[in-house]
Design a protein around this nucleic acid. Structure first.
Length: 270
DNA sequence: AAGCATTCCAACCGCTAGAAC
DNA sequence: AGTTCTAGCGGTTGGAATGCT
C-alpha cells in the first residue's frame, strides 16, 4: 500500500531522474528529508502546540502544517502513545494487570480493544507489557503464552493469587474499597451490572461490578464468583479436572515456591 | 571500572479497512 | 466501480538503561 511505503528508507540503487520537476523524484527527495528515530523536545513542543491550536487528525497534513519533518504516521504515534495529556505513565497497577490478563484470555492480542478498558494506557504499552512480562514467564515455563497450558496457569494460579494478594493489601491499607478501581469502571462505562458479563463480545465489566458489590471483603467468595463468571467450566472448584494438567499445575505451584515466577516480581512493579 | 547480558519501551514497519474522490 | 488516501492495528526492532560478573 502506498501509505506504508511512505516512511520506508530508500534502499538499493538510486533511480536517476531525468527531470528536476519529476514528481516521483521530488517525493523521494522529500522522503530523504524526513526525520526518524527518537523525538526531540523541540519536536514534541511543536507537535503539542500545533495540536492545541488546530486539533488532531489528518496527520499527514498536520505534520506538514506544523513544519515537522516527520511522517503523519510518526506524529500520530508520538501523540497517542506519549504526548497526549491523558496518557498514564508508570507501572501497571494490580487492577490493570488483572484486567489485562482477563481480557487477553478472552480476546487474544487485540491490544487496542484491551486498551479501551484501561484508560490512559496505550495499546503499545499493553502489548509491551504482555511481551516483556507475560511471555517471559511463559517461556520460563516452556510453553507458549497463547497455549491452553499457559492460560490454565493464569486461571488457576496467577490470577487468583494476584487477586488475593491485592485484596489482602487493600484490607491492610484501607478499609474496604472495592477492588478494581471504580474510577476506571465509571469512566469507561463499565459499571453496569448484570451478571452475565462476558456473554457477548462487548465487555461490559459485569464481572468487576459484581466483584465490587458487597462481597469484596471475602476473597474466597470473590474468587469463586470470579471463576463462575469467567470460566464457568470450572464449576465450583478451582482445580483442574484433568490429571495431567493437575500435575502440571502442581509443578507450576512448586515453581512459584521456588521463585522462578515470584509474585513479588509481579508486585514490585507497582 | 569495564565489559557483557538482559530488560524495557519508543518507534518503526507492513498490512488492512474504510473513507474520499 | 476503481483508485488513492488516511487512520489504525499488531508485530518487530533498535538502543538506552540497568544488572551482573
Amino acid at each position: 500500500m502506498a501509505s506504508s511505503s511512505s516512511t520506508q528508507p530508500s534502499s538499493g540503487a538510486t533511480i536517476p531522474a531525468p527531470l528536476d520537476d519529476d514528481p516521483k523524484r521530488q517525493e523521494e527527495e522529500a522522503e530523504t528529508e524526513l526525520r526518524r528515530g527518537p523525538w526531540t523536545v523541540d519536536e514534541d513542543l511543536t507537535l503539542v502546540n500545533y495540536i492545541a491550536d488546530n486539533g488532531e487528525g489528518r496527520w499527514n497534513s498536520l505534520a506538514r502544517g506544523a513544519g515537522l519533518k516527520r511522517t503523519g504516521k510518526s506524529c500520530r504515534l508520538r501523540w497517542l502513545n506519549y504526548l497526549r495529556p491523558d496518557v498514564k505513565r508508570g507501572n501497571f497497577t494490580a487492577d490493570e494487570q488483572l484486567l489485562i490478563l482477563d481480557l487477553h484470555s478472552r480476546w487474544g492480542n487485540k491490544w487496542s480493544k484491551i486498551a479501551q478498558h484501561l484508560p490512559g494506557r496505550t495499546d503499545n504499552e499493553i502489548k509491551n507489557y504482555w511481551r516483556t512480562r507475560v511471555q517471559k514467564h511463559a517461556k520460563q515455563l516452556n510453553c507458549d503464552a497463547n497455549s491452553n497450558k499457559f492460560k490454565d496457569a493464569m486461571k488457576y494460579l496467577w490470577m487468583p493469587r494476584l487477586a488475593d494478594h491485592r485484596l489482602q493489601q487493600e484490607s491492610t491499607t484501607r478499609d474496604h474499597v472495592p477492588a478494581l478501581s471504580m474510577g476506571y469502571m465509571e469512566s469507561s462505562g463499565m459499571v453496569t451490572s448484570s451478571s452475565d458479563s462476558f456473554a457477548s463480545d462487548s465487555y461490559d465489566g459485569g464481572f468487576y461490578a459484581n466483584a465490587s458489590i458487597g462481597k469484596i471483603a471475602d476473597s474466597g467468595d470473590w474468587m469463586q464468583e470470579h471463576n463462575q463468571v469467567f470460566w464457568p467450566e470450572l464449576n465450583q472448584s478451582c482445580q483442574p479436572e484433568n490429571s495431567e494438567l493437575s500435575g502440571w499445575v502442581q509443578g507450576f505451584s512448586e515453581g512459584l515456591a521456588e521463585n522462578f515466577w515470584s509474585l513479588e516480581d509481579i508486585w514490585k512493579m507497582q
